[in-house]
Design a protein around this nucleic acid. Structure first.
Lengths: 201, 201
DNA sequence: GCCTTATTGTACCTGACAGTCCATAGTCGG
DNA sequence: CCGACTATGGACTGTCAGGTACAATAAGGC
């Protein structure tokens, strides 16, 4: 159900924020409605009043991430304008992980890894979010190629896929090892590869 | 508790196999002891007789994976002897995923993504497994470099990290998108990068 | 202010989850 | 072939998950 008053909207947002944090920290399956209520300082009735079910909450959390990605407020904004931006985008992920002492991975990847054959709705939400990211990343490569600053053999969308996959994998390995070394090594190699598409001057 | 008779060993193995499959399919948190018992055709008393707790079972499942990796029976054996082997190793992961219609990721990555700040034992098990894989992959790069078939600037262990991270990330994205395209694109780019370290003849 | 609708607190329900217990059946060394 | 130990089935328990019911309170339109 949607919210009708400013107060309700605030409560709703508090729940979403608390849930997003818990999902990031411990995953969806390990997070109970009671935990979300406690963390957001609300009662359980609000939870079900606004989201109907746990799955509904996951959906709303993902909508919020989608809006952030679209609006450019995602912590690692994939709107890239230069090779420096691209490097910053990669590095932003490690920085983010380090803030949690390498105990967390990517908030979206964490949720994605819990998706099974029947969570079709959640899966589609995630697919959409990653598609938006993919297009934003690809847009940079497309612009660079048009400007003659990227080899013709470069496949822009595939490079975007490569960026996303390496970042997701690197964060996962970093979390398992509790070490940023793997993440940095992977990012370094990925950047070397991407730059190899820059034509010699 | 260890097993004392051949029959007991068999039951124990059936439980481990059923659990490994369920963990792969739906993760650890979503798998209950009852499900494992049902899937393995055993009673719950065996479960607790042999493993003591759910965490104990996870540990034993991971020990089994570790043995497989060490013994070379892991479905994507990281003991590489040639560039062709390396490509096969990458491709083996996609093939594996395709057998499950892209509804599953990497069995180890799936478990790894559920690890939180307090599952220290499980985390260390995984770290060890990936370290063994990493060393096996690095061994290939070290041999190649020694034979002059790999550029001196190549950092062997970092390349191994890069291989593992890209594969994990690719499988995760493949599972989210229910499509092997991302996985293949990522693997292609990763292989291009790795081969760029082969010196020109 | 009053009525309607939105928002909130709390008690409660049902079933599943992790785990225990114990009696019985099976196995094995001597 | 027998006694001791191992393996097994399944009923049982306490706790918590996800979700409902309902009454009480607060907001806003008129």
């Amino acid at each position: 159900m949607a919210t009708r008053t400013a107060k309700g909207a605030e409560t709703r947002l508090r729940i979403i924020r608390a849930a997003a944090d818990l999902f990031h920290k411990q995953g969806v399956a390990a997070t109970s409605p009671d935990q979300v209520s406690a963390a957001s300082g609300t009662g359980k009735s609000q939870f079900y009043h606004y989201f109907g079910s746990k799955e509904g909450l996951v959906h709303e959390v993902l909508q919020t991430w989608l809006d952030a990605v679209r609006g450019g407020t995602y912590p690692a904004d994939p709107a890239i304008d230069s090779w420096r931006d691209l490097e910053q985008w990669f590095r932003a992920h490690v920085k983010w992980q380090k803030r949690f002492q390498m105990t967390r991975g990517c908030p979206l990847g964490t949720i994605g890894n819990e998706v099974t054959a029947d969570d079709e709705l959640v899966r589609q939400d995630l697919t959409l979010i990653f598609e938006v990211m993919r297009n934003k990343l690809a847009a940079f490569f497309i612009r660079e190629k048009a400007a003659g600053r990227l080899a013709a053999r470069a496949r822009e969308h595939e490079l975007a896929d490569f960026c996303l996959a390496t970042v997701e994998g690197a964060m996962l390995m970093g979390r398992i090892n509790r070490s940023s070394a793997v993440v940095e090594a992977t990012i370094d190699e990925a950047l070397i590869h991407l730059r190899s598409y820059i034509p010699a001057p």
